[in-house]
């Protein structure tokens, strides 16, 4: 995937910044009368800048799904190229189910799931395997293959789907492990069971991105980690988006890190999307549930 130009598109930016000069690298919230002056300008990293060309990469349209009881009802949201959409919500609201729908491990009862404009609902098993190759998934438990070394884990998608030779594979694995701040020489020969939780998660990210996917999916990337490791992982997800302009869908209940890395937030409540939009706008919502969910953050 090529890097997109970073100039803000005049057709988009003025809508977001009605009375401010467009500032490269910063998105400024519209002024809010209720807030003090210092909070009017909310500085955010360049990662959160709206993408100049808003090409939808992932679209979920009016999806409903029920097993024994309804899990999702009329859920819609989309992620444009280079965006990070964080799906937040209480535990047990079907957040992870959304990722399974995107990977087509599950098929919705109603509605459409589009990846790169292609509806993946009616694909055959083998076609679905192809679509999955566009995505890198990071599991909550990292889900490393515990019979394989770290090296073989990260190399797995490369061996499966590319014609790279051994040297190229090793170079790629080293590159990815370095990207996630692990020392290749130290960890490559280790087994997943020998690693700490944070390291395992990082190896999981390295494996997810090994094949240079255009979409990264994260299931609770920061759950069960200490605050420092949480910050590291959040930083990694942002780095991935910034440097490789990957489109990301993150499922999380950690509101703090969600606001740091999300360009859009989708709040799932009571099987529906209660809110979908930028984190800034979310704070301004005059809704009791959202207020409670944010908990003053």
């Amino acid at each position: 995937m090529s890097e997109k130009p970073s100039e803000p598109d005049p057709s988009i930016v003025p809508e977001i910044l009605p009375d401010e000069e467009p500032v490269t690298g910063k998105v400024v919230r519209p002024p809010d009368e209720n807030l003090g002056d210092d909070r009017r300008k909310l500085e955010r990293g360049p990662a959160q800048k709206p993408h100049p060309e808003a090409t939808p990469v992932v679209q979920v349209e009016n999806v409903s799904l029920a097993f024994d009881e309804p899990i999702l009802e009329d859920v819609s949201f989309q992620a444009n190229e280079g965006e990070t959409v964080v799906v937040v919500g209480e535990s047990g609201t079907g957040k992870s189910t959304i990722l399974k729908l995107l990977l087509r491990l599950l098929v919705p009862d109603k509605g459409a799931v589009l990846v790169d404009g292609q509806d993946i609902v009616d694909l055959s098993f083998n076609e679905a395997l192809k679509v999955r190759q566009k995505m890198g998934m990071v599991f909550q438990s990292a889900a490393l293959f515990d019979s394989l070394t770290v090296f073989e884990n990260v190399a797995y998608p490369l061996r499966e789907h590319t014609e790279l030779n051994e040297e190229e594979i090793e170079a790629r694995v080293r590159e990815k492990l370095e990207f996630v701040d692990l020392e290749p020489d130290k960890v490559m020969s280790q087994m997943p069971a020998e690693l700490s939780g944070g390291m395992r998660k990082r190896v999981g990210i390295a494996r997810g991105m090994a094949n240079n996917p255009e979409i990264m999916l994260y299931d609770e990337p920061t759950s069960g980690l200490d605050p420092l490791t949480t910050a590291t992982i959040t930083h990694l997800i942002m780095k991935l988006q910034k440097e490789l302009s990957v489109t990301s869908i993150v499922v999380s209940h950690d509101i703090r890190s969600s606001f740091r890395m999300g360009t859009k937030i989708a709040l799932l409540a009571d099987r529906r999307i209660a809110y979908f939009g930028t984190p800034e706008d979310m704070r301004k919502q005059d809704d009791e549930y959202i207020g409670r969910f944010l908990g003053g953050y």
């Binding site: 399974k100 990977l103 395997l129 192809k130 999955r132 998934m137 797995y156």
Partner: peptide, 17 residues
């Protein structure tokens, strides 16, 4: 144990049957 630790899902998502 591969199923309960999501490794089967991981295989699926990595495009392996």
């Amino acid at each position: 144990s591969m199923r309960v630790t999501e490794q089967i899902d991981a295989l699926n998502t990595l495009g392996t049957d």
